[in-house]
Design a protein around this nucleic acid. Structure first.
Lengths: 180, 180
DNA sequence: GTCTATAATTTGATAGAC
DNA sequence: GTCTATCAAATTATAGAC
């Protein structure tokens, strides 16, 4: 694995657990067995690192969504895929959504990262609206997309807080059944 | 206003926008026009400050809930009150829930604060279960309580991210209508 | 309770050799 | 690309005078 990849892995691990300021160059250096000055070679400023991290996270999320919706036909198929991508992020990494966390810390992070995080959310909403039933009005689509996104983010947060991933399943199943 | 109150106000303002590490003793000192060593007189360790802040936040939340449910009779009355307390925290302070944010930053904060935050959530769930219809099973009560809590937290997060408090209303109205 | 002074550590960042 | 060496600033925290 390349050094930048190792660095992003280490940074993602730390950031998704403790937030933006829970990641320091020295921590990443220790994690990857190089010196902190070498970390700066790959990511000169912390903002560069954070931006690359959100970029990679969003790409992985969107790629996962695309893969899982390949054979999706109904709205429920697509929503199951949406749920599965967040579930994978929660269960495989045992951590909350990077963008959810950074969004909450909004005032404490560089503007460029804040903007990129917001983009992740608007992309989520646009995609959700695109797969909701065609006979729904645009405004009802938007309302339900917001509820689904918020519900999934909250579900990750609560599951992590209670250390019980079944809570994520319970909440998101209920959303998929009852929210239109 | 007493100095501790001023300090907690300043700390809450900063922490609910940028997270635990976005609050420094020097910032608080500048905010309140005293020196950072004087801040330490009131809150010797940062952990003391953080704990007092979560304590005050939880008390204000629970007091608000109690006040707003004084004349509540139905489950919907109580849920409207629950929604209103979070709404007030979002709109009046123009910030997300302190406990939601700290929960997300869980690995980056002292254990005592982490525990107190988790307590906020278990209290929320217990209360929600207590006001749900008596004919629901305990497990269905728990599932719906989780969904409602997660939904409200996610709604605050998304409303703040999109800078549109109407999103909070839209999401939580939908939850109150459709989630049982 | 607040101040001055200061210590100890951490952090983001740079210069220059190899 | 990685290293050694180093820096300036920020941060948490304490001692002791007023």
């Amino acid at each position: 694995m390349s050094t930048p990849e190792k660095l992003l892995d280490a940074a993602e691990y730390r950031m998704r657990r403790g937030g933006y300021n829970a990641v320091s160059f020295r921590d990443l250096a220790n994690d990857t067995k190089i010196k902190s000055s070498s970390v700066h070679y790959h990511y000169p400023k912390k903002e560069d690192l954070g931006l690359a991290l959100v970029e990679r996270y969003a790409k992985k999320f969107n790629d996962g969504l695309e893969a899982k919706t390949k054979d999706a036909e109904t709205t429920q198929d697509n929503l199951k895929a949406y749920q599965a991508v967040f579930r994978q992020a929660l269960v495989e990494d045992d951590a909350v959504c990077l963008c959810g966390l950074l969004s909450a810390e909004s005032a404490g992070i560089p503007e460029s990262i804040r903007d990129r995080v917001q983009n992740f959310f608007t992309d989520n909403i646009r995609w959700l609206m695109s797969i909701l039933p065609a006979d729904m009005s645009e405004s009802r689509k938007r309302a339900s997309a917001n509820t689904l996104l918020a519900g999934h983010q909250g579900a990750m947060m609560l599951a992590k807080n209670m250390q019980d991933n079944a809570i994520f399943d319970s909440i998101t199943d209920q959303l998929l059944e009852q929210v239109i």
